[in-house]
Each structure stands twice: as C-alpha cells, then as structure tokens.
Amino acid sequence: MKKILGILILLIVVCGVTAISNQNFVSAYNIQNVTRLTSLFGIISIGVAFVIISGGIDLSIGSVICLIGTMLPYLLAKGVPVPLAFLLVGVLSICIGLAHGLLITKLKLQPFIVTLCGLLIYRGVARGITEDQTQGFGTAHAGLRYLATGKIDLPFIEGFKLPVPFLIMLGLALLAAFLLNKTIFGRYLKAIGNNEAAARYSGINTDRTVIMAYVICSFLAGVGGVLFALDINSVQPEGIGNFYELYAIAAAVLGGCSIRGGEGSILGVVIGAALMRVLRNSITMLGIPSQLEFAIIGAVILVGVITDELVKRYAQKRRANQQSGMYSG
C-alpha cells in the first residue's frame, strides 16, 4: 500500500494541475478517452507484472500485440467464424507464453534473450503473413468492436459513459489481484521472484509457476492486441505496438513491481498505466508541443521514482527509530 501511495499522489497531482489549467481535461468525453486507453495499456501492464514479479522480463509484448492484433482481422477476412478466430488467437498467445516459459525454465535461457528474440520473430511473422498490408475490420463486425469502443451508461451520472474496455480491465485486474494475493500460485510466484532456491528447497514446482507467469503475460498481451485492433480498426503490422512492452514495464515498475522480482500489486500497476496515459493527455491539454512529449513523460516518471525512493528511505528511518525506541523503552 505504501508503495502505491507515492504514485497515486503523483497521478492526483498531474490530474489536478491539468484540470486547473484546462477545464476540458475533466470533460466527460476526455475522461472516457483516457479511461479507455488506460484500460488497454493496463491490461498488458498487468500481464507483464506477473513476469516481473517472478523475477523475469518480457520484451515481446509489443510484438505479441502486433501478431495477435493482425491475426484476428486477417482470420476474419479469410472467412473464419468469429468464435473460432478468437479461439485461435487465444491459443496462439497462450502458446507463445508457453514457449517462452519452457525455454526459460527447461533450457535455462535468459528471459531477456528469449523474449527479445520473440520481439523480432512475432512482428516478422505478422509482417510476413500479412505481407505488410494494413489489416482492419472495415465496416463489419460492429458488434465485436463494441468490446473496444463501446460505452455503457452509468446510472446517476449524467453524460459520463463507462468505456467497455474499462470493464474488461477491471475484471482482469480483479482476477489478477485474486491470483496474486489469495492463491497458492501467487504466493509461490512472489517467493520465486524473491528467492528461487528457497522456493525450490520448499518443494515448490518452480518451473510450472514461472511458465504460468509467462503464459499469463502473453495471453494478456494477446487480449491487448485484440482490443487495440478493435479500437483503431487499422492495424499496421510494421508499426502497431512498437515500444508498448516498455510502456507496460514502466507502468508495472511505477506501480511498485520491483524489477528484481518478488513484489508488486495489481492496483499499483493499473495506477501506473493510468499515469502514463494521463501524462500524454495532459501534455496535449496543457498545450505543450508534442515534440517535447517523451522528454516530459520521462522526466515526470523519473521525478516520481526518485520521490518514491526518498519517501521509502524516510519511512525506513522512521520505522527504525520507532523500533529501537520500542526496545530501549
């Protein structure tokens, strides 16, 4: 909870500053858009959080988004029925995670290398299959696209409608939080991330747990790919999802996942993803030239991480003082 507090405050500050300088930031329409994008990025960030907690890393997320995001419209265009197409891309994304996990645990390859190769392979495959043609759903599948672009009326609140992806992310986040905090799998995952040897010496099937983490990560990247494709309706194999793995990792780390493994919270990750999106939105709203966008995002995140570290040290010092006070008293 303490780890989340810093980032939450940063998010509130950014929102506050933007809202004060530009009324439009808090318009229902803008909040809907930011919420939708936060949800899309949140989903892939939750996925990578599992891998990071296990002490690994997944660099292939952007390319998985690309592969799944292009395969869905591609399959539909080939006349594959919708449920079968969904099943196929789902199985494909799970297989990708399975392959990562098996290579990392059984062959003991480094996660960095395995997923880096994945990054190259999946985008290459996507570009090869589609021959670099932009994929889309055209005007068809309006019902499907509701998943990404739909909005639901809320009772009592005038004007604001809840984007459907938010509900999807909420469901996935709750499930993820349950997995991480209430199940044996989650406990094992944290134990492995912190000390794999100790976990193995305690009789834990560490390989299976790690593989599971990569499967979850790739599957959620696949879900993200599907939603991104449904959202923008023009999936360019060469460009879509470039660098998204880094956004996802940044969101997860901002949200309190230690890159050394062992810790992390789903709520934090979602807040991290929200911060990333709100920052981009704020930059527009504040009228900052888009050329400076990345510089500002980088700087704000850095300030956030530094503040977080300082707050943590302060808290540690205070705790040490209190404890020693306890003993001497």
């Binding site: 406990r187 094992y188 912190n194 000390n195 100790a198 976990a199 062992g262």
Partner: peptide, 21 residues
C-alpha cells in the same frame, strides 16, 4: 539466506511455504 528463506517475505509466509498445498 540463499536456500532456506524468502527474505523479503513475512515470517508467516515463510513458515507456510511448504505446507500451502
């Protein structure tokens, strides 16, 4: 420290690590 304990976990969580299942 290397093989026996997950150092950053609580006493309770370490204690139950082998018996959860």
């Amino acid at each position: 420290k290397l093989q026996g304990l997950v150092l950053e976990m609580a006493v309770r969580e370490n204690m139950s690590l082998a018996s959860l299942t």
